[in-house]
Write a protein that binds this DNA or RNA. Structure first.
Lengths: 293, 293
DNA sequence: AAGTGGTCTAGACCACTTT
DNA sequence: AAGTGGTCTAGACCACTTC
């Protein structure tokens, strides 16, 4: 993919690779000179040659490029969940762009919930430990009372080879290693959710039933803290299905009674799928909350 | 409250007696700017004495006030669905603020899907006639093929007095007038959705089964075009329920088979609820699509 | 007082659409 | 060529938090 800057400017900036001091125009900056000091990635860029002032076919606004650079730093762990990222001024200085451009990049990252701004304090990497984030991925709300996190009972956690359909959803090959988890979530003393989860084997080496059982709190917080895999977004397909024998027993409902089936694929940075989850929800005293806007 | 007056732009004229220069919280004039061009609301400002730039308790950024003014014009029908609203420059001039401030107001309106920007053309009031908008409110997707709108068969459309629970959801009094509609949606030849709908009686005078039947297209497009009521957002509660006798017959499924129950409350401008809808979806060959982000 | 994000302005130029 | 939204910059001041 790539990139590609508007760049033609590559010539100007990178005189000195390391030292950021290279101000392109050496100061002469009339009200409107194209800055272009973007520290673009590989200087290669297709048409390395000339300066086509022609709008390149793959035009990308500066702030999008900055956004990509910041995202890369988030992904690489330069700034970890819960930590503060550099101030807008610092980032502007680092990337040699104006504060306004950095601001627009961060605006989008905040809109995507990758970071959160806090006036007077700074901009922070979001984390699944925060309540706000937690309930973005748990949409089951009790008829009475506040949303809460139930107790999790892990039934199973083992490595196995991906069945065809799971592999397809995870964008890996059939037979590649995956971790399978089965668990029951208990809300207010009632078994309410039966989850069957498949995780990308490569990302979750060392995940055991013990670790899952010992962990108090959202599973995604564990994944983020212990395995460096952060769930960014998810896509769900929801249906009503009858309880089979297994589900009926584990959830204490009659066979054939209606359950909400929620098939989720979760993605991390770069829109790479890392989890497939199939949940069966008892919706007698809870409902799935969704807002259309 | 206090906020920008609708305009009276004249007030800004220098020398105007009553126009205090007191801009509550929103001032940021460049060093050389003439007296605040902001058509500020009047008088209040607590400590009339000295400077006291104390932020008023009801501080609202300028762009939020502009946003509210634009919203009011949308609501009043000054700019109708599908039409173009005035350009940013025009609005800036009308409200006596900078283009950047108008831009930020419109940014938020666009994020809320009240308007849509089209580069080079203008900013347009969104409408339920557009595909993009249509599928924001219809989340049922077929397992195979593209999302589509099915045929609607109206079973019933009558005025009646609101039952207690519907009245509560619509924020009216029990017994107030409402319109009740029952219909079946047909997707690819299969009865897939059974809807029971209650509409605010005051907003839908003259709505009949004939009108509904004759109308080809999304119901919300009819409401918007004929009744001036535009659905802005909705909140849904989703459950799995067994088909009762009526539903089973109308949807051609066995009694007791699992259906997706979708209880929706829809809101128009000002977050006023205007519709309650209870849908029963057959999810054998369709699913409810939802994205968490 | 210092630092951070939040608001506001003014002006320039770019990209897209229409005339 | 003209008009509209989109990007980018530079600078000022405001509001919030922390020292």
């Amino acid at each position: 993919m790539s990139s590609l800057p508007t760049s033609l400017t590559g010539a100007a900036a990178p005189g000195a690779p390391e030292s950021g001091a290279a101000t392109p125009g050496a100061g002469a900056q009339p009200p409107s000179s194209p800055p272009a000091p973007v520290p673009q990635a590989a200087p290669q860029s297709g048409p390395a040659s000339g300066l086509q002032s022609v709008p390149s076919p793959t035009f990308s606004p500066l702030y999008q490029q900055i956004k990509a650079l910041i995202t890369r730093s988030l992904q690489s762990g330069e700034w970890k969940p819960g930590e503060m990222i550099p101030s807008e001024m610092e980032l502007a200085s680092r990337y040699k762009v104006s504060q306004g451009t950095v601001r627009k990049a961060i605006d989008e990252l905040a809109a995507e919930n990758l970071v959160a701004r806090r006036q007077g304090k700074g901009t922070f990497v979001t984390t699944h430990h925060e309540d706000v984030v937690k309930f973005r991925f748990l949409r089951l709300v009790p008829d009475e009372g506040e949303p809460h996190y139930g107790a999790s009972r892990v039934l199973e956690c083992k490595r196995l080879r991906a069945p065809a359909e799971i592999a397809r959803l995870l964008d890996i090959r059939t037979g590649d290693s995956v971790v399978q988890i089965r668990r029951v979530l208990n809300f207010s003393g009632e078994s309410t959710v039966l989850d069957e989860i498949w995780l990308l084997g490569a990302n979750f080496k060392g995940l055991t039933a013990e670790k899952l059982t010992e962990w108090k709190g959202p599973m995604y917080a564990l994944f983020e803290a212990e395995f460096g895999t952060r769930m960014i977004r998810a896509s769900e397909k929801i249906r009503a299905v009858p309880a089979d024998e297994t589900a009926a027993e584990l959830l204490s409902v009659p066979i054939g009674s209606p359950l909400l089936s929620v098939e989720r694929v979760s993605y991390t940075y770069g829109d790479r799928p890392v989890e497939v989850r199939r949940g069966l929800y008892v919706t007698a005293r809870h409902y799935y909350q969704n807002d259309l806007s």
